[in-house]
Amino acid sequence: MSLKIFLLIAFRGICSAYEQLLFKRGTNSLDSQEFKGASGFFRFISLILRMPRIWLAFLVIAIGWTVWFVVLSSADLSLAAPATSMEYIAILGVAYFLLKENICRRRIIGALLVLIGICFLAVS
């Protein structure tokens, strides 16, 4: 893995974490209990799509994709594991430090086991 590819993957991980932060902040600003049934679902989606921070998230996704397309063109199968790992760590960091989610020890152990499992799948 060249340094260029590594930096691109790390950048994409940061983009993913920022997207998720914006998404979660968006849904946190609404009360999910208010949206029941199919009509509630459509109302929920239309409210979400009217939030500026969701559109900022789409912009970040477009940047992340552009970077990812460049990574894909280098066609290296060994990239899946480090890319996933970086996203996991960045997203859990965002959940803990910025969203102040209550992360108990069980959840950390669970997330790490899933991450190890995915890395096994990526190399197999």
Partner: peptide, 26 residues
């Protein structure tokens, strides 16, 4: 492959831990 089953096992155990952390009131 054997490695794939090992991966699946890790994920399954991990999900049990995660599901157990789910019901806590925040």
């Amino acid at each position: 492959s054997f490695l794939r089953w090992v991966g699946v096992l890790f994920i399954a155990v991990g999900i049990c831990f995660l599901a157990n952390s789910a019901d806590k009131k925040v």
